[in-house]
Design a protein around this nucleic acid. Structure first.
Lengths: 189, 189
DNA sequence: AGTAAATTCGAACGGTCGTCCGATCGAAAG
DNA sequence: CTTTCGATCGGACGACCGTTCGAATTTACT
């Protein structure tokens, strides 16, 4: 337990948001969870917005670490695509908190300018990774060159995202979870 | 202007949420927008939660009226599928507020039990309509009977939903808007 | 050891929130 | 005309919010 207070606060903030959502999380909650005085948050992160922007960065980092562990060298683009879908399935079961935070922050971005930019970056990073690693020239040719790599990447990520929220709302419904696998029809035309 | 106060309050609530999001909308805002005393909200809707549940019903109703106007008699299932995608494109351009409300309420459902049930109903209603009208036996056979109608419906709706949020965050990006059209590959295998 | 800077704390502030309550209004019923 | 009752209002209440500030403590450097 040699975590600095700054880290303890960030961890607590992430955890509280995952549990209750951004709108229902107060600085006092975060401080208590971190075992720290409320004023420490302002000291280290200026204000609530500053802390939450740091949480966005943390969520993005968590996601990218999942990604690193999943994508192996030497996979074909199509295998990477399948793997991408599998990753979402895994995360949805083992760490649904991550997706909740992602959804919550994306929602926040709809209304708040400073968050919009950050969340955009996160989303852009994800789709760009799909664009370059999954939809290379060969795959695009197989699909008839009808759509650009970026378009297909947005479709894949959007599909994953949209199905994931349905799955969170209906955890018992297997046909929704199957939809995730079904998404692979995109590159099996 | 013969609207009853109850209607005025509901209209104002819907409008405020579409503008600022649920979390940033206060009863005083709604009351002012409706030209009504704050206490009237409790009188007609018991409390804030009661009012917001009514807003969910209103949003669902708005959506279904869009739907009624779009789906014509005598369309083939595949045409209905395409039409469904077109509807989302239209709404995203002409009435993005509706989608914002949908996203916001779905997010609320992640954290609040009473909302979860209502939002589930709305989502279930949408996917069920797709299930029965778009993915009939013929279409399923064309696609090789690999997935159930319900699975494919969740995928279509999820794809639309996930792409729509990206489009709202990146209004200038044409490749995202193209992703909506690209979704039709689902039933063009 | 002594001092200056960086941390940490608890208390307080002004503001906003959802809710509640008594008073008033207006129309229908006796 | 009086009574009754639902509708409407403005104000007040307690709780909680994010932020600020001065004092206490710890750390780092000479």
């Amino acid at each position: 337990m040699d975590k600095t207070q700054e880290e303890k606060i960030l961890d607590a903030a992430y955890h509280c948001i995952a549990k209750d959502g951004y709108a229902r999380t107060s600085l006092r909650q975060i401080a208590q969870e971190a075992g720290v005085a409320v004023s420490q948050i302002s000291y280290h992160y200026t204000n609530k917005e500053g802390l939450l922007l740091a949480v966005v960065a943390r969520a993005a980092q968590n996601y990218h670490e999942y990604m690193k562990g999943f994508m192996k060298e030497g996979m074909t683009p199509q295998e990477k695509g399948e793997q991408f879908i599998t990753l979402f399935q895994e995360v949805l079961q083992t760490d649904p908190e991550l997706f909740r935070v992602l959804y919550d922050l994306a929602g926040l971005a709809l209304w708040s300018e400073p968050f919009r930019d950050r969340v955009r970056d996160v989303f852009a990073g994800i789709t760009e990774q799909i664009t370059t690693e999954v939809f290379d020239a060969d795959v695009l040719a197989e699909l008839g060159n009808e759509y650009s790599a970026k378009t297909l990447a947005s479709m894949l990520f959007g599909g994953l995202f949209g199905i994931a929220i349905q799955a969170l709302l209906e955890p018992e419904d297997v046909s929704i979870r199957n939809s995730l696998s079904a998404l692979s029809v995109i590159f099996q035309k």
